[in-house]
Amino acid sequence: MKTDDFRKDVNTAVRGDREAFSRLYALVYEELYRTAFYSLRNEHDAADAVSETVLDAFNSIRKLRSEEAFRSWIFKILSAKIKRKQAEYSKSAVDINAPEYESILHENFKFENQELAEAMYRIEDEDRLILSLSVLSGYTGDEIAKICRINPSTVRSRLMRTKEKLKRLIGE
């Protein structure tokens, strides 16, 4: 989408236009869903998180300050949704070895990626979110810091550590 079109859509969406909002959403929906899926490790919760994000975003888009901020803004909303859900999980300890996770892994990932996918499922909640924002959406450390509300240097070092960890977990 051209920059001008994008701005126009943001401005139209701010006034409550659903079509314009959908066009903007089309730019990010795959990343939103996959970030949520990977962070929450569960398709239903991921879908819920994304639809809640969509509603929140649409309801509050009139408060968006600048067109350029759309992408990071909607990810910020998503990241808050994810964190809420993750907080709920930690109360009811999620067992990665449970059969439901095995089936998620088997159903969703091809054999050659399973080892890595499993390793990626085993890293800490917030690190998974950081990793997906970085690799999937190409955000920089500073942008991730703003989205997740953590120290940028922490983001950078944790990202580095996560990657090191993955390398070791899959023995590469």
Partner: peptide, 28 residues
Amino acid sequence: MSDKIKKVLETPEVPDRLKPENITELLD
């Protein structure tokens, strides 16, 4: 490494109800 991670992350298919063409229904 990043490419491989990306491949894993890009694996899941987005459910139909979240596709942009269906999102206006959700908004409605």
